[in-house]
């Protein structure tokens, strides 16, 4: 009898809670319509597709040959996924000369900035001024700068195709370690590593944001 009463009390409380929720016009989370779980993780390897004719530089930008001596430049999906909340800043004037290692443009994250370095010598021929510039949906089709390059050095270490994909994966791994190392909050970040969803990105992002200089040193060097 006692056993039964205890169980009934337990069930009764759950029932009352449902009623209370109903009264308040809310639904219990168990009976909400299931929504599609966001399973895309920033560290989800399977999602990386790098177009064939692209070349990635170690500073996480891509080059695409338009015609002889003319290259489109954009950011790769690593950079794009590391920060969801960012904007581009300080583009060079068209006609300016750029050297290997100069800042191509700046990347604004919160109230800090990152310098994205140019992997080539050349002259800026045009920049993307459309409004959709900051809202990157497909990083590999949205270009930022077109540059006229005189010569492309082999030592610039461009990657392409499968190798580029492997490298990006490896970079995500490194980012994982980076976030770990800078968190002092291992277990929580551990959660972010293995579980998908938006909240995850925001934590990793917060950590990266707090250690932006380190991030620059680790990931944006040529």
């Amino acid at each position: 009898m006692v056993a039964l009463s205890v169980v009934l009390t337990f069930l009764f409380v759950i029932l009352i809670d449902m009623l209370v929720l109903k009264f308040q016009g809310k639904t219990h989370p168990a009976f909400e319509n299931s929504f599609v779980e966001d399973t895309v993780s920033i560290f989800d390897d399977a999602k990386i597709v790098i177009p064939k004719n692209m070349f990635l530089s170690k500073s996480h930008i891509w080059l695409k040959k338009l015609s002889k001596g003319l290259y489109q430049i954009g950011i790769d999906n690593f950079l794009c996924k590391s920060f969801t909340n960012m904007s581009f800043n300080k583009f060079p004037e068209p006609g300016n000369k750029l050297k290997f290692g100069d800042a191509l443009f700046e990347y604004r994250v919160g109230n800090k900035t990152l310098k994205i370095l140019s992997p080539v010598d050349g002259i800026v021929s045009s920049i993307n001024k459309t409004e959709s510039r900051d809202k990157i949906i497909d990083p590999y089709s949205q270009w930022q700068v077109i540059i006229q390059a005189e010569r492309i050095d082999a030592q610039n270490n461009f990657l392409s195709g499968k190798k580029a994909a492997v490298w990006i994966k490896e970079e995500f791994k490194r980012l994982e370690d980076f976030v770990y190392a800078h968190s002092g909050n291992t277990e929580l970040v551990g959660a972010t590593m293995y579980d998908g969803g938006k909240p995850v990105e925001s934590v990793a992002e917060k950590i990266i944001e707090n250690y932006l200089e380190d991030f620059e040193k680790e990931f944006l060097k040529l």
């Binding site: 492309i152 461009f158 195709g161 499968k162 190798k163 490298w167």
Partner: peptide, 13 residues
């Protein structure tokens, strides 16, 4: 993989 493939792709540039 990186090593084996050498600098092949640079020719394409």
């Amino acid at each position: 993989e990186n090593r084996n493939n050498g600098n092949k792709y640079h020719e394409e540039l």
